[in-house]
Simulated assay, not measured.
Amino acid sequence: MSTIAIFSDTHSSGGHELTGDALEAAQTAEIVIHAGDFTSTTALEAFQNECDRLFAVHGNADSAAVRERLPTARVVEAGGVRFAVTHRREGGATGLAMFGRSRDADVVVSGHSHRPSVVETDDVLLLNPGSHAQPRGNRPGFAVLEEAGDELVGEIREPDGTLVAEFAVATRG
């Protein structure tokens, strides 16, 4: 069974800031996606040390050194689903959906707002895991997806395991 963990907005100069279920998810997932704003190379490298396979983009608060190492956007195929990853896009949900369509994505992963959310559009799921470390008045969050038949079932959780939202995405099988 394939497990995918999704994070964003670490905002740290000291490390990955992962605790509880969020740390366990990063350590055990086959693939980890991060939608930017590590802030420092120390935080990026701490994530890399915890994850077997990390696919990340940089965000607007990332240092020049992090920006040099990570793309602005990328596509990741995992668990029979195509993920388009970016930190943010102008135009809100419409801009994110257009970004996803232009990359033939099933899911668009973004960050920036620090607000965990799942929005279903006609042809793409918009997923913001929130921030596990700097929620800025929102619930802290990260997402985990697992294969279940012909779909990936997902949850946004707080680092202590509290459920925030549930969702599902059909696989391309």
Rank of each mutant, 00 (worst) to 15 (best):
E50N: 12
R69T: 03
L127W: 12
V164C: 07
G91R: 15
G95H: 13
G161Y: 12
G130A: 08
G149T: 11
R53E: 06
G161S: 07
V107M: 04
A78K: 01
D62T: 11
V66N: 09
V81R: 10
V108L: 06
F55N: 08
P129K: 08
I156P: 07
A148R: 15
V109K: 03
M98V: 13
E147Q: 13
R89C: 06
A61L: 15
H112Q: 07
D62S: 12
G100E: 03
S117Q: 10
D106K: 06
L96S: 09
Q48R: 14
R74W: 01
V85C: 03
V57W: 05
A65Y: 13
L96M: 12
R88A: 00
G130Y: 13
G141V: 06
G149M: 10
A143N: 14
Q134M: 11
V119F: 11
D104P: 01
E155Y: 11
R67V: 02
T72F: 06
V107F: 02
D160R: 12
N128L: 06
E146D: 02
S113R: 15
G80E: 03
G91M: 10
L145G: 08
P116G: 04
L70F: 03
A133Q: 09
P129V: 06
R103M: 04
R136D: 00
H112S: 05
T86A: 12
A78P: 02
E50H: 15
A93G: 05
P135Q: 01
P71H: 00
S113V: 09
H114G: 01
S113T: 15
E77W: 07
L125G: 02
M98L: 14
A105Y: 00
N60A: 12
A84G: 05
P140K: 02
Q48C: 04
F83P: 01
S117K: 14
R88F: 06
R115T: 05
A78V: 02
I156D: 01
H132F: 01
R67S: 02
G100C: 06
S63R: 14
P159L: 04
F99A: 04
Q134F: 14
V81G: 04
A84P: 07
I156V: 11
D62R: 14
Q48W: 05
H114A: 04
S113Y: 11
P135N: 00
H58I: 04
T86D: 00
A105M: 01
T72I: 04
R74T: 08
V153H: 14
G80W: 06
A61C: 14
